Amino acid sequence: MKITVIGGTGLIGSQLVSRLREAGHDVVAASLSTGVDLLTGAGLDRALEGADTVVNVTNSPTFDEASPQFFRTTMENLLAAGERAGVRHQAILSIVGVDRVPQLDYYRAKTLQEELLRKGPTPYSIVRATQFFEFMDAVISWTADDTAVRLPATPVQPMAAADVVAALADVATAPALNGTLDVAGPEVFPLDELGRLTLTARKDGRTVVTDAQAGMFAAVVGDALIAGDGARLAPTRYEDWLDGHTR
């Protein structure tokens, strides 16, 4: 099977490309660095030539009010190029609960991306993943100073990027879902507790202060980011992952 991975040089995309190639598939890694610009459409026709499936794991460069236009333009360009190339399956990576947090510009933008894909001309799959373990350091940095980190107690169900990749690879090589698959980690944590676990593992002496107004995830209400019934639960536990990434 020939598969084009849009965003194929990033955190998820590079791992997905490697996994699919190891499984024997013909894979094109498409990104700005390989001459493919989703915003202008430059290089798309070449990148999609002969592709059976396209997996789009690109991300907006910002999380603000500019992100909806990014996802509208890039999704429309990709769908049009896919139709020209005769692509039979378009898949995207999205976020669990993305349609339940309209307060966030970025989540509204990803919801728009999903809607455009559903209404598009090609059979599709949407893989919604929970927050990645790998992003926890960034989340901490948003509301940190020299002595403390302020985090809300928002429930999250994080997962390893490698487990996201495994789910994407399975979906990319199967018939289109024409629907959505939720994938999530095996455990639910309050975000502030996840911060404490992370700082302890990093031997970071700062204190985590529970603050319902702190950071982007303060806008999340209830269990919006928790996977529901029928989700695919990943095997990797956060503390096991931390142990392997702090030595």
Score class of each variant (00 low, 15 high):
Gly86Ile: 13
Ala80Cys: 10
Gln90Tyr: 15
Glu83Lys: 15
Ala91His: 05
Gln69Thr: 13
Phe63Glu: 11
Ser94Ile: 03
Val87Cys: 08
Arg46Tyr: 01
Gly86Pro: 14
Asp45Leu: 01
Glu49Arg: 15
Glu83Tyr: 05
Glu49Val: 12
Ala81Val: 03
Ala42Val: 14
Glu76Ile: 00
Gly50Ile: 06
Met75Cys: 11
Thr58His: 11
Phe63Ser: 04
Glu65Ala: 12
Asn77Glu: 03
Val55Gln: 05
Ala66Thr: 15
Leu48Asn: 05
Thr58Ser: 14
Leu93Tyr: 03
Gln69Lys: 14
Glu65Phe: 00
Leu93Cys: 07
Thr58Phe: 09
Leu48Gly: 05
Gly86Gln: 12
His89Gly: 08
Thr74Gln: 08
Gly82Ala: 10
Thr58Lys: 10
Ala42Ser: 13
Ile92Cys: 11
Ala85Val: 00
Gly86Leu: 10
Phe70Cys: 07
His89Asp: 05
Thr58Asn: 12
Phe71Gln: 02
Gly43Ala: 01
Leu44Thr: 09
Glu76Val: 05
Ala91Glu: 11
Pro61Gln: 03
Asn77Leu: 04
Arg46Trp: 00
Ser94Thr: 05
Thr73Gln: 13
Leu48Tyr: 02
Arg88Tyr: 07
Ser94Glu: 03
Leu48Phe: 06
Arg46Gly: 11
Leu78Met: 15
Phe70Trp: 13
Ser60His: 06
Arg88Lys: 15
Ser60Trp: 02
Ala85Cys: 03
Gly82Tyr: 02
Thr74Cys: 12
Ala42His: 13
Glu76His: 06
Gly86Trp: 14
Ala85His: 02
Pro61Gly: 12
Arg46Phe: 00
Ser60Tyr: 01
Arg84Trp: 14
Glu76Gln: 12
Asp64Ser: 07
